Simulated assay, not measured.
Amino acid sequence: MEIDERSSNNAIDCIAERWQTSLMVPSIFRLLLGTMAVCLLPSCSNKAEEITGHRSSNYVEPNWEKFRSISFEQNEVEVPDGYAPAADRFIFADLKYESNESFARRLLGALSSRIVFIDRQQHRWKYYQSENDPIHSVTLFSQPEPWGSAFGLCRIERYEISFSSDGSVESVDVSPRYGVEGPIFQKDNFDWDNFRGSTCEEVPSAHTPSYFPVSDSVLDAQDLAILLSLAIDQAGRDGPLDYDLSCRSFSGEECEEGIRQYISALRLNEINSVNKLNCERAPNEDCFTVTVGEHQLGPYPKLITIRGTTYMNDWQVYSVSVVESFTVS
């Protein structure tokens, strides 16, 4: 059996996740260990058996830049003379005027050195009545970094902070996010030195709010990014699809809009959340259910369940099923 570097790295990362450790070994030993892991530990990834029961796919490599993370726009605000951060609490004036460095330091202490972008939620400023009102919430994003063997994907931490009525911190929710910043569809000749060196370091900080959520597993992030991007790319091309596509409402009726056109225009940054709902998996199958459009009016939110495989770089999408709701206010 032929084992490439990505497959051996994936096998090692899978073991590391189960043992909650990191394997630091030379590349030749990674390759040997990856071969052993693929052969001896099928229960780790559920992908060591032959894939059967699905029609073959005519693979066309998508342009990875089509799925690259995008910049988040935020307007500059002029700081008035005499402004100073509030003492021992966080108010609307701080949300508008305090520098990123000072604001992050007051919120996260030593962790502030990791923060590269702050979403000040300008779309919600209209709900404040005065500059002395306590802040409702704010979101901070850490420096992108390479993670495991997911070539082309960068990982960040997202800090969502909520405040109480007296302006003190009430809760902090930390979650991983991932973004496409390199050729995730590449199957060989990986430039690991460049990827683990400058690729993630040079990502514009304004890209980080567009990173998509998934579990803390970089393997899940890689599988989801590849499968969903393949489905999107094929939906935007001419000809019949190589996967089954369906759409229905929560009440069971068929969707009215052209679902293929919708899928073709979807992007990873639109994902609100990811879970395993509707994912009773067959052996060797990857499955994710993503939620999009949580705060949109009309035929939203949508639950999109995608099934397929990424085993040994033989990437195939089996099916995409959409269940849509309808929001009027």
Score class of each variant (00 low, 15 high):
Ala86Glu: 14
Leu33Gln: 01
Phe195Val: 05
Cys14Ser: 13
Val290Lys: 01
Tyr97Phe: 11
Thr208Leu: 03
Phe190Val: 04
Tyr262Trp: 14
Val323Glu: 13
Ser321Leu: 02
Glu324Lys: 06
Leu277Asn: 10
Leu228Gly: 05
His136Arg: 15
Ser102Asp: 11
Asp173Asn: 09
Ile304Arg: 07
Ser165Asn: 01
Asn132Phe: 01
Tyr318Met: 07
Arg55Gly: 04
Ser137Gly: 09
Ser329Asp: 14
Lys66Ser: 15
Glu2Leu: 13
Asn100Lys: 05
Ser22Thr: 15
Gly298Phe: 02
Arg281Glu: 09
Arg281Tyr: 02
Thr139Ala: 13
Thr309Trp: 09
Tyr243Pro: 02
Ser210Glu: 01
Thr327Gln: 11
Thr291Gln: 14
Phe190Met: 01
Phe195Leu: 06
Leu303Thr: 10
Ser27Tyr: 04
Asn313Asp: 15
Cys200Lys: 04
Arg307Ile: 00
Ala48Asn: 13
Asn63Glu: 15
Phe163Ser: 04
Ile306Gln: 04
Cys279Gly: 00
Thr310Arg: 09
Ser112Tyr: 06
Gln234Cys: 07
Met24Asn: 08
Glu294Gln: 08
Trp315Gly: 05
Arg114Ala: 11
Asn194Ala: 13
Thr139Met: 13
Asp4Phe: 04
Trp147Asp: 08
Arg237Gly: 05
Ser229Cys: 05
Gln261Met: 11
Arg114Phe: 04
Ala110Ser: 08
Thr52Phe: 06
Phe141Arg: 01
Tyr159His: 13
His54Trp: 05
His295Ile: 10
Ile156Ala: 00
Leu241Ala: 01
Tyr318Pro: 09
Pro240Met: 05
Met24Arg: 14
Gly293Val: 05
Ser99Leu: 00
Thr139Gln: 15
Val77Lys: 14
Gln20Thr: 11
Pro204Gln: 09
Val214Arg: 03
His295Glu: 15
Val25Asp: 10
Lys66Gly: 09
Ile184Met: 00
Asn284Gly: 06
Met36Trp: 12
Met24Gln: 15
His136Gln: 10
Met36Ala: 12
Arg18Asn: 15
